[in-house]
Simulated scan of single mutants.
Amino acid sequence: MKTMKSFAVAVIALVSFTTFAQTTKKVNTTESKVEWVGKKVTGQHSGTISLAEGALVFKGKKLAGGTFTVDMTSINTTDLQGEMKGKLDGHLKSDDFFGVEKFPTANLVFKTLTNKGNDVYTVNADLTIKGKTNPISFDMKVNGSTATTKLMVDRAKYDIRYGSGSFFDNLGDKTIYDEFELDVTLNF
Rank of each mutant, 00 (worst) to 15 (best):
D96H: 06
Q22M: 13
K5R: 14
E181N: 12
T19P: 09
G144P: 04
E83A: 14
D159T: 14
M1K: 12
Y121G: 00
S74C: 11
T122F: 02
S32D: 02
I160A: 10
T19G: 13
T133D: 00
S164K: 04
T69K: 09
A55P: 14
V184P: 07
D154P: 05
I160D: 06
N115M: 02
Y162L: 12
V41W: 10
I160W: 02
V142L: 00
V153I: 07
H45F: 12
F188S: 10
F98N: 03
L92P: 02
K174D: 14
F103E: 03
K132R: 12
L182V: 04
S32N: 02
G165F: 07
A125T: 01
M72Q: 08
D71A: 06
G47T: 03
W36K: 02
V109H: 00
V34G: 00
T73D: 13
L56K: 00
N170S: 15
G90R: 09
G43W: 15
T146R: 05
D154L: 10
K39C: 11
S6D: 13
A21Q: 06
D169S: 14
K130Y: 06
T42I: 05
N134H: 10
D96L: 13
T29I: 06
T24I: 13
D169R: 14
V153H: 07
G43V: 05
I75C: 11
V27E: 04
E101V: 08
S6N: 15
L151K: 04
T149Y: 00
T146V: 06
N170Y: 08
S164F: 07
V142R: 00
S32T: 01
K157P: 11
G66N: 02
K174Q: 13
E181K: 11
V120Q: 00
V34L: 00
F20Q: 05
M1V: 15
V37T: 08
G144V: 01
T114Q: 06
Y158F: 08
F110T: 03
T185H: 09
K59C: 07
T105S: 07
I176G: 03
T18W: 13
V27S: 03
D89K: 11
F97P: 01
Y162E: 09
I136Y: 04
V100Y: 07
I49P: 02
T148D: 05
K59N: 12
V11Q: 10
K150I: 14
T149H: 00
S145L: 09
V41T: 08
F98I: 04
N187G: 10
T29Y: 03
Y121C: 01
L63N: 05
D173G: 06
E53P: 06
K87F: 12
A13T: 09
D119G: 04
D178A: 11
A13S: 14
M140N: 05
N124R: 05
A156D: 15
G90C: 04
L51V: 02
F110G: 02
V15A: 11
S94Q: 08
T185R: 09
K132I: 08
Y158H: 11
K40N: 05
H91Y: 09
K61M: 13
